[in-house]
């Protein structure tokens, strides 16, 4: 990964010096060994701080939303999963391709700094796995889909076992059992909205959960309002979730959010497929739920 770091620095220097980008988004090392974190370079002097290492887990495409309304040209580093986020933003007309310089990295699988931080915090909790992050164990797309420059050697997907096997287990539960499962899971939610904030598919200018007139979803921390929050969020994810797994990773109360999102990925493919969000970028092409087709299936309504 040192090679990749050096190449990223080289590219960032070149882009900044030749005034091709205004900001270059990558990672820097934080105070702790494991605390690699997003880093924003505007001056060539800071390029030396850029790193790509085993903890470069964050999906940086989410930060493009911060530059949505500016004229800044942005260089950024993406892994395979992250690159699908760029496709989604382009499809949603949230960003112009010509304002982007995409450095793709073939991803060898990443460790989750949050898990290590929790393990080392001393706070009482069962120990977390410090090896490859949970989201990487479901990885189907280690190699970037869209890029201007590609770094690293092509990787095989890191997933193992049958895709959607956990979803099938839940589908096979009887309705009461399934309701109980989701009630137990979602009552833990503290409604911090980290899952929304970290999500690149959540790019609405005013989120439905922030709407006050009318207020669509109550702000009580109760089973009803929590379920409503997660149901509405899930519905909005249909056809948009790129399975980067960031929502689940950042959840401070360990809600298995990817179970919900994967079910939608599976259903989207089944009803409107074959389709997987953000798997290819064709200018002007719209995802299935962004267009109306008279033949759209409606048996499930």
């Amino acid at each position: 990964m040192t090679d990749i770091t050096l190449k990223i620095r080289e590219i960032a220097t070149r882009l900044l010096q030749s005034d091709q980008v205004d900001v270059f988004v990558g990672w820097e090392k934080g105070p702790q060994e494991y605390q690699t974190r997003p880093f924003f370079v505007r001056r060539v002097e800071d390029v030396e701080k850029l790193v790509f290492n085993e903890y470069s887990i964050h999906n940086l495409t989410n930060y493009l939303l911060k530059y949505r309304d500016s004229t800044d040209r942005v260089g950024l580093v993406v892994k395979g999963c992250d690159s699908r986020g760029i496709v989604r933003l382009l499809q949603d007309n949230q960003f112009k391709r010509n304002r982007l310089y995409i450095v793709g990295v073939c991803c060898p699988g990443i460790k989750d700094p949050l898990k290590i931080a929790k393990n080392q915090s001393g706070l009482a909790c069962p120990p977390n796995n410090e090896e490859i992050a949970d989201k990487c164990t479901r990885c189907l797309v280690p190699n970037p889909i869209i890029y201007d420059e590609l770094l690293g050697e092509s990787q095989e997907p890191h997933n193992s076992g049958e895709r959607f096997s956990e979803i099938k287990t839940i589908e096979n539960m009887d309705p009461n059992q399934r309701y109980q499962f989701f009630e137990d899971t979602l009552t833990q939610c503290i409604r911090c909205y980290a899952c929304r904030q970290v999500c690149v598919a959540c790019n609405c200018r005013t989120c439905i959960f922030d709407e006050m007139k009318p207020q669509w979803v109550g702000r009580e921390n109760s089973t009803t309002d929590n379920m409503m929050y997660h149901l509405v969020k899930a519905m909005h994810m249909a056809g948009r979730c790129i399975e980067c797994g960031e929502c689940e990773r950042v959840c401070p109360v360990n809600i298995p959010l990817m179970l919900i999102n994967s079910k939608l990925v599976k259903d989207m493919d089944h009803f409107f497929g074959s389709y997987e969000a953000g798997m290819e970028y064709v200018e002007g092409q719209k995802p299935p739920l962004s267009v109306y087709n008279p033949d759209d299936p409606d048996d499930f309504i």
Partner: peptide, 12 residues
């Protein structure tokens, strides 16, 4: 120190 342990983006 809780915020340090839980910040998804390593803000300390």
């Amino acid at each position: 120190g809780r915020c340090i342990s839980v910040c998804p983006n390593g803000i300390n």
